[in-house]
């Protein structure tokens, strides 16, 4: 499974056709390891005051304990709100950002947010107000979403949305708690390294490139051939720098060019028959 989803559905007593407000936020965009998690939270507009009284705040301004408590409360309040998250693994991030035609982190983020909106709309929830924290220029992002979702009356993309709108705060808490859970439950057992000395430690700190613990981990747990387990984002500059000079050089030459170089020892320039050329069959004796 690439995408793991954590979600809570609305209580069946709630009328999905009444106007809803929805907020979207992300956690783990910057770190060099672990997944990026997108979270959304939605609630009937009529329940706005109840939502306010739940005292959601920007997840960064809360302690881990406060976040966990609020998340727990969210799970028990499906008569007021529901949430959904999209976990984008480090492996997927690396893959997409390292394609020959790379997909930028911004585009991956937009796609995830759009996926969440689609998923909620598909459940028949009548979303009329949508608030998001910006990724890239806010007005462009807002235009794109308005075009994609004309059925949503009001779409607002703004900076610091997570501290301005309670529904976005709730979404940010869901995203952050899910990401923390993914990180803390991470061990490297799946690598099946039985040699005690070679076990990878899980003391990787916050995962942010600026964290000394994270830096230390990256230096200590390098494999010269593979670099790191795919829990690490290979598309980050930090990872590239940590591997450079220590890990063996890898050359992804276009296959055809490589073969050409490989066989160009044949200096006789003897004409080859089409069949051999087209099927890449060469006389390789000269090569040894």
């Amino acid at each position: 499974m690439n995408n793991i989803k954590y979600m809570i559905e609305l209580d069946s007593s709630i009328d999905k056709s009444e106007p809803f407000v929805m907020g979207i936020d992300e956690a783990g965009r910057g770190p060099v390891m672990g997944p990026m998690v997108y979270g959304c939270c939605y609630a009937p507009v009529s329940k706005s005051s109840t939502l306010k009284s739940m005292k959601f705040n920007d997840s960064k301004k809360l302690t881990e304990q406060q976040r966990d408590q609020l998340f727990f409360k969210m799970g028990e309040s499906n008569k007021i709100l529901a949430y959904e998250t999209d976990v984008i693994s480090a492996e997927i991030l690396s893959e997409k950002m390292l394609y020959k035609k790379p997909i930028s982190l911004n585009v991956i983020s937009h796609e995830s947010a759009i996926g969440l909106i689609r998923s909620v709309l598909k459940k028949g929830v009548n979303v009329q107000e949508l608030y998001l924290d910006t990724v890239g220029p806010p007005d462009k992002y807002q235009m794109m979403l308005k075009k994609l979702f004309p059925e949503i009356g009001k779409i607002i993309v703004s900076k610091k949305a997570d501290s301005l709108f309670p529904i976005v705060s709730a979404a940010s808490i869901a995203a952050k708690v899910v990401r923390d859970f993914e990180i803390s439950s991470k061990n490297f057992d799946d690598l099946n390294i039985y040699d005690e000395d070679e076990q990878l430690s899980t003391e990787f700190g916050s995962g942010y490139p600026s964290d000394p613990l994270t830096k230390k981990w990256l230096v200590k747990n390098r494999d010269k051939v593979f670099g790191y387990p795919n829990f690490i984002r290979f598309s980050w500059k930090t990872t590239e720098t940590a591997m450079r000079g220590t890990c063996y050089g890898v050359d992804w030459v276009l296959e055809n060019d490589k073969l050409k170089q490989h066989f160009q020892n044949d200096k006789n320039d003897k004409k080859r028959f089409m069949f051999f050329k087209e099927n890449n069959i060469e006389n390789c004796i000269n090569d040894f």
Partner: peptide, 18 residues
């Protein structure tokens, strides 16, 4: 594999190559 690596020898294939 579709790349060259500047190394010839053993590697922890079963650990890392999923």
């Amino acid at each position: 594999l579709p790349f060259n690596i500047g190394y010839n020898g053993f590697a922890k294939v079963s650990n890392y190559f999923k």
